[in-house]
């Protein structure tokens, strides 16, 4: 069972209160994008074993989208943060690095 703290309403929301939104920080290229760019946006997801950044929506609660950083293998949640950002917060990245020294860092 996964419990994520919604950064908007502060509720520790159960997995069943949430809707998953896939990988976070995926770049959606503009209208003049090439087919390759669009293919990458649609299909080339990272799906790592370990540190992963994801989008979630507090669908049964306040209805807001937010981001979460967690470990896909241990299910440890490193933290959640608002959706209005293009990269994970520095403090969160430092925290993850401390817990997972092998982690290569966040790459866009």
């Amino acid at each position: 069972m996964l419990i994520l703290t919604c950064p908007y309403c502060g509720i520790d929301a159960d997995e069943t209160d949430l809707a998953p939104g896939g990988e976070a920080h995926v770049t959606r290229h503009g209208a003049d994008a090439s087919d390759d760019d669009f293919e990458a946006y649609l299909f080339h997801k990272r799906n790592p074993r370990g540190v992963h950044f994801e989008r979630w929506r507090h669908v049964y609660g306040c209805g807001k989208w937010f981001h979460a950083a967690r470990d896909t293998m241990t299910l440890e949640v490193f933290g959640t943060y608002p959706a209005q950002t293009l990269v994970p917060p520095k403090t969160l990245q430092t925290k993850i690095k401390k817990k997972r020294p092998d982690w290569k860092g966040f790459k866009k």
Binding site: Y8, C9, G61, C62, G63, K64
Partner: peptide, 8 residues
């Protein structure tokens, strides 16, 4: 009045 979400 009840607070339903950050904007509702």
């Amino acid at each position: 009045v009840a607070w339903m979400s950050p904007d509702e």
